[in-house]
Amino acid sequence: MGSRRYCVAVVQLDTGSDKADNLERVSRYIDEAVERGARLISLPEVMNFIGKSGDGEEPEPIPGPTAELLMEKARRHEVHIHGGSFSELNPEGGRPFNTTVMIDAHGAIVARYRKLHTFDVTLPDGTACRESARVHPGDEIVTAETELGRLGFAVCYDIRFPELFRLLALEGAQVLFTPANFTLPTGKDHWEPLLRARAIENGCYVVAAAQIGRKPRFVAYGGSMVIDPWGTVIARARETPGVTLAEIDLDFQEEVRARIPSLRNRRSDVYELRKRQAPPRRCPPSTRGPGAAPS
């Protein structure tokens, strides 16, 4: 086991449709984060390209141009880099994956995670959003043991599925990454509460790097932050692209789990989904939030 305390940087981006320019800015932000003392740097979802459709496009193999840039930066600066996510060329053809890579301080890829959950919904007006038509979902829960602790991975919409995060924690994850391109309507109401819940219920740090700015299909919320295992937001980005720093303290993480032993107190002997016949309920009208939007 390596460092118990270290500096993490979350990089908030306003990614556009010029891949070369996007990667140049990523490179500069990594350099800045290193100069400011970061040993672990995290990037947002679709960090290298957002085209006219509003999605990550121009899929690449891994390793490929984007991954190799991050690998070279990690090796040169001797830092760990979490690559946010970008479109990965499907080796079997068909739809690409939305993939994150974890790169160690030697420049080696030590983990690859493909986004599990795709946002598929039909809105009340009949409009259908089918992320699964454009992105092939992954099929593996991924953690990585590093000198900075055991790390666990998710991407954007995944944060709405607490069972994924519980499994990551049960596999020993201490720091959870949630790169995102959240919309403004869902972001302002759901982003922070969901992230804090994932941190609290699992006793983990949550590192959440996000997109900001106007995209082709929506305005991205931003709100990049780092949350400690107690659920406290210990760092929050301004409403602009840039680098935000926080401290990871794995001794504090262990202390929180000792104080709130919810992982040890689980009742897995009775956790089973059962079908129940529930009587119909009559509820008074309620005030509803805005219609669903991609997140």
Rank of each mutant, 00 (worst) to 15 (best):
M1Q: 09
R4W: 12
Y6L: 05
C7G: 02
Q12W: 04
T15W: 14
G16P: 03
S17W: 11
D18P: 02
D21V: 09
N22L: 03
L23T: 05
R25H: 15
S27W: 00
R28A: 14
G37L: 05
L40F: 15
I41S: 00
I41E: 00
S42G: 00
P44G: 03
N48W: 00
F49N: 13
G51H: 10
G54F: 09
D55K: 13
G64D: 14
A67H: 06
L69W: 04
R75K: 09
V79Y: 00
H80L: 09
G84V: 05
L89I: 01
N90A: 06
N90E: 05
E92C: 04
G94R: 03
P96V: 07
T99D: 13
T99L: 06
T100C: 11
V101M: 13
I103C: 03
H106S: 12
G107Y: 07
G107T: 09
A111S: 09
Y113D: 02
Y113N: 09
L116D: 03
V121C: 09
L123F: 11
R130M: 05
S132M: 02
V135G: 02
E140K: 13
V142S: 08
E147T: 06
E147A: 11
G152I: 02
G152V: 03
G152N: 14
F153V: 06
F153E: 01
A154Y: 00
Y157A: 02
R160Y: 15
E163G: 09
R166A: 06
L168N: 04
A169K: 15
L170C: 14
E171I: 00
G172A: 08
A173W: 07
Q174F: 12
F177C: 01
T178I: 08
P179V: 11
T183M: 01
T183F: 04
L184V: 02
L184E: 13
P185W: 07
D189N: 06
E192F: 12
L194T: 08
L194I: 04
L195D: 06
A197N: 15
R198A: 12
R198I: 11
I200E: 05
C204G: 05
Q211R: 06
K215P: 01
P216N: 10
P216F: 12
A220F: 04
G222E: 14
G223R: 08
M225Y: 00
V226Y: 08
V226K: 07
W230Y: 11
W230E: 11
R236S: 12
A237P: 02
A237Y: 10
T240N: 04
G242C: 05
V243Q: 00
V243D: 01
T244E: 06
E247S: 13
E247D: 10
D251L: 13
E254C: 14
V256M: 15
R259A: 13
R264A: 12
R267I: 07
E272C: 12
L273R: 10
K275E: 14
Q277K: 15
A278I: 10
P279K: 14
R281C: 05
R281F: 07
R282S: 07
R282M: 07
S286F: 08
T287Y: 13
A292G: 11
A293Q: 13
P294L: 08
